[in-house]
Amino acid sequence: MTAVATPASAPSRRRSLTGVIGIRHLATPAVVVVALIADYLWVHSLRLDSIEQRTLNSGYLVGRTAEHLKLTLVATVLIMSIAVPLGVLISRVRARWVPPLVLGLANVGQATPAIGVLVLLTITVGPGVGVAMTSLVAYSALPVLRNTLIGIQQVDPTLIEAARGMGMRPAQVLWRIEMPLAVPVVLAGLRTALVFCVGVATLATFVNAGGLGDIIVNGIKLDRDPVLVTGSILTASIALLLDWAGGLVESALRPKGT
């Protein structure tokens, strides 16, 4: 069934694995710290005019960053609570045409430019955080939905047969066998969604929902490079750090023995 590992080789393999994770897990924060420090030193060396000063002060930066994080995290929680159950649900459906249909709809959500969704929703219901959230979820739900479905489908069917043969009920098979084994795939999808969200949340500024998009758009509109660059670096840093944290969670929650 699986490759045979001799008892002696198992612990040593685990040790070398943690070594690799250690290095990879230090690299991302290091890059982010270096980029932020470099940006800080650069901005500090400039003489800022009043327009730049209005944006590049700690109060404004922290406020926008907090908004951005909030948009991203709330959207991610929403995606989790919608896409994971939906993925499980469509993995249970007997009818063959259902999963492609649902995935197709989710694909439309992702394929449609987020800015377009944002504009359409704003025209119909008016601007606001709700609109930003809706388009974030619509845009970023696909990876989680697809990975939940795939994660469950990729579970070795002989394991399910063995579980049923032992007398597990369908719910027990789902919770004790299928879901734990699907966790790594689902989390990988969630990580992708998280990064999508950080990017798309910059568009929230167009519907008055704040976030780091405010800084970037200010920088573009007012032709102030330090503002534009700082907003971009902050956005990229958040994306990298969240992806990094997602990776840590992924390896922590990976079921033992797999």
Partner: peptide, 17 residues
């Protein structure tokens, strides 16, 4: 019923986790 009947398959089906 199945809990009262042992079941062994060729692929063994041990749960890896």
């Amino acid at each position: 019923l199945r809990r009262r009947i042992g079941y062994v398959i060729q692929q063994i089906g041990l749960f890896p986790h």
